[in-house]
């Protein structure tokens, strides 16, 4: 038993070190990272990695660490996960998005806004209760929409700072940043749920 074990141990050599290599996540700043729009309209990244070598990523995934309370800080940049490839590793973190120039900020924010797409409800045209489900017609930052809500007690969440998140039956999320700024008619329609 011990003999075979010794034999197997010998199999392990330096070349195995590559098996366990994991990318080291770095702090991304304008000095070591340049974002650009990829040919496919997504985001490409060039960095100087932890080893001091330049590296190019055709596409990166941009994530917020604190999407609800702190959208501008700790933006994570990761290798994409695709269905076929293995899990993506983190390339680096941006401490604050505004360290980068305006063009980069708007490039990143455009991508981030899509990822955290949560339309703001501006105006609520009608809310029709039909037996446990309510059918909403509203105008949002992303255009007019109709959606269905059930179980308002668990699907309308009110944050500490009075922001309202509404989750519809499909799992889509809508938000109202400041309910008091809604017009009277709209406010009256959501009032009963608050």
């Amino acid at each position: 038993m011990s003999e075979t074990k010794a034999k197997k141990t010998d199999v392990f050599s330096d070349e195995d070190a590559a098996l366990f290599e994991k990318r080291e996540s770095i702090m991304l700043t304008p000095d070591n990272a340049t974002f650009s729009r990829s040919a496919g309209g997504l985001i490409s990244l060039d960095i100087i990695n932890a080893k001091g070598e330049p590296e190019h990523f055709e596409r990166v995934v941009v994530l917020r660490s604190f999407p609800i309370t702190d959208p501008d800080d700790y933006i994570a940049i990761r290798e994409p996960e695709t269905r076929k490839s293995k899990r993506g590793h983190e390339i680096g973190l941006i401490e604050n998005i505004h360290q980068f120039d305006e063009a980069t900020v708007s490039l990143l924010n455009e991508e981030l806004d899509r990822r955290y797409f949560t339309p703001e409800l501006y105006k609520i045209y009608s809310v029709k209760e039909k037996f446990g489900y309510s059918y909403w017609e509203a105008d949002t930052s992303a255009g007019k929409v109709t959606f269905v809500l059930n179980n308002p007690s668990s699907n309308i969440r009110i944050l500490e700072d009075d922001r309202i998140f509404i989750f519809d039956i499909d799992g889509n999320c809508f938000q109202i940043t400041d309910p008091t700024k809604l017009d009277r008619n709209s406010y009256r329609k959501i009032e009963i749920y608050l």
């Binding site: 269905r83 990822r115 797409f117």
Partner: peptide, 18 residues
């Protein structure tokens, strides 16, 4: 090739490798 769906909070993006 390789169609892939990126899941976001309230939306989904269909990507593919061209």
């Amino acid at each position: 090739a390789n169609p892939y769906v990126d899941n976001f909070t309230s939306s989904n993006r269909l990507l593919a490798h061209e």
